[in-house]
């Protein structure tokens, strides 16, 4: 049995949880209603801002007539491929840099430049080199994500406790064993953080690519919508995009919980 004090404590925790859930839902509902009402009463120009009920209708329309699922799938596919490639390549480069101080010292300035260069500036070049298609988009998203991954993972690899490394050496561990049993294993929490950043970076890269190349995907719908001045389409695409990025985040979050 719990003490009276503990019961009160539990009550308080429960009440706070309820408040949080209430306001989470309240904010979105209030925002949606306000938007809907203001647009209906023409306080704001519904042609420019659209409104929730119309967005829902547009989603259904797009499903039927414009193959919305295909566009969502294309965007998701490009995001996942570039996310996986960038994460794997970044981790491999980071491990190589960790394994050799010399290689790190040689590559350090290049990495710094590549990491800080705004990759969008390479867009037109990439389109010319790789072609105006899915590959270009994946490549652009990859470029945006891979250097951050490398730098983040390398920086966390080198913070490994030096005493633990000495311990591994004293037990006769090879460099490979030190890496797999200690350096990599010990940095799984920062790996998960990096993956969380990567999923949104890849999505940013993909959308940027689609805006430029404009053939398929949600980025294309946004460009197309703005070109024909169908702002309702633009807002609907952004709305769908928001839902997708939230779902992707949740997937990584679930992964994190499973590992813990």
């Amino acid at each position: 049995m719990f003490s009276e004090e503990h019961k009160n404590y539990l009550k308080k925790v429960k009440r706070q949880n309820k408040i949080v859930i209430f306001f989470k839902i309240f904010i979105i509902l209030a925002f949606m209603s306000l938007w809907e009402i203001c647009a209906k009463l023409e306080i704001i120009n519904p042609f420019l801002t659209s409104y929730p009920s119309q967005i829902i209708l547009t989603i259904f329309d797009l499903f039927k007539e414009n193959n919305l699922l295909l566009h969502i799938w294309i965007t998701l596919y490009e995001t996942i491929i570039s996310f996986l490639l960038a994460s794997i390549i970044g981790i491999i480069i980071a491990s190589i840099l960790w394994s050799s101080k010399t290689i790190f010292r040689i590559l350090d300035p290049y990495l710094t430049v590549l990491n800080s260069l705004p990759k969008i500036s390479l867009g037109p070049l990439i389109i010319i080199w790789v072609g105006a298609g899915t590959n270009s988009i994946i490549f652009m998203a990859l470029l945006i994500t891979v250097f951050t991954t490398t730098v983040n993972m390398y920086n966390s690899f080198i913070t490994t406790d030096p005493y633990k490394i000495i311990l591994m050496k004293s037990l006769g561990a090879t460099k490979m064993q030190i890496f797999s049993k200690l350096v990599f294993r010990g940095n799984i929490p920062s790996l998960i953080n990096t993956l969380k950043i990567n999923i949104s970076l890849s999505l940013i890269g993909v959308i940027m690519g689609e805006l430029l190349i404009s053939k398929q995907g949600l980025g294309y719908l946004i460009t197309y919508g703005s070109q024909v001045f169908n702002l309702n389409l633009v807002l609907t695409s952004i709305f769908v995009l928001g839902i997708i990025s939230y779902l992707l985040y949740i997937i990584i979050d679930l992964l994190e919980r499973k590992i813990k």
Partner: peptide, 27 residues
Amino acid sequence: IGYMLQEDSLFPWRTVLDNACLGLEIR
């Protein structure tokens, strides 16, 4: 040779038993 330092250097992600078996695993 067994080497022991001031820091226990136990790996927080391993159980006591798995920590104690680290050397055996490496070898």
